[in-house]
């Protein structure tokens, strides 16, 4: 985010401290995450303590403090999914994307995450791509899922 881009967002909200949330949303929408430098600049420009901004930034799940890819891949590593081989799937993804859970690929396309049980244990092992659940995953299937093989992706099991 450039200084000018931030300035535009702030102007749009009339430099109102009360619009902090809306401003954060705009920043997140532009960069897909909240860069530290931008939050620090916001604190300066709006005369709001950084603590207050950081509080909001970490409270709402809609915000991320680390760069996000265009697509979010979440591997469930809860007990049921673990038993059914979540680790293999995670390994496959880590190798394919060359990132660790919590990280984003250098081309900013994918963010890999893990989660503890999504309450759909019957579908274990479970992978979620951009909010869509894909059950009974296996290593090969998850790769075609990434490549956008719609036939596999839409099969909700």
């Amino acid at each position: 985010m450039t200084g000018a881009q931030l300035e535009n967002i702030l102007k749009k909200h009339d430099y109102q401290k009360s619009s902090l949330l809306a401003i954060l949303q705009d920043v997140q929408a532009l960069d897909n995450y909240l860069p530290r430098k931008t939050l620090e600049a916001m604190s300066q420009r709006l005369q709001v303590p950084l603590t207050q901004i950081y509080y909001l930034a970490t409270f709402y799940r809609a915000f991320s403090l680390t760069p996000r890819g265009d697509h979010l891949v979440t591997v469930c590593t809860g007990t049921a999914c673990h038993v059914k081989g979540a680790a293999t799937i995670l390994n496959t993804l880590e190798r394919e994307l060359a990132v660790q859970p919590g990280e984003t690929t250098s081309d900013k396309k994918y963010t890999l995450e893990t989660v503890n049980c999504l309450g759909s244990c019957a579908l274990a092992p479970l992978v979620v791509l951009d909010g869509h659940y894909h059950g009974r995953m296996v290593g090969t299937k998850v790769l075609s899922l990434l490549k956008g093989d719609k036939k596999d992706a839409s099969k909700k099991s």
Binding site: L39, I53, F59
Partner: peptide, 24 residues
């Protein structure tokens, strides 16, 4: 000094300086 804030929520909630950096 505004050096501290609540961070995260749920079972990851804690009090800490922003970005873990106690600069203030």
């Amino acid at each position: 000094a505004n050096a501290l804030t609540f961070v995260n929520r749920g079972d990851r909630r804690e009090v800490a300086p922003p970005f873990g950096d106690p600069i203030a």
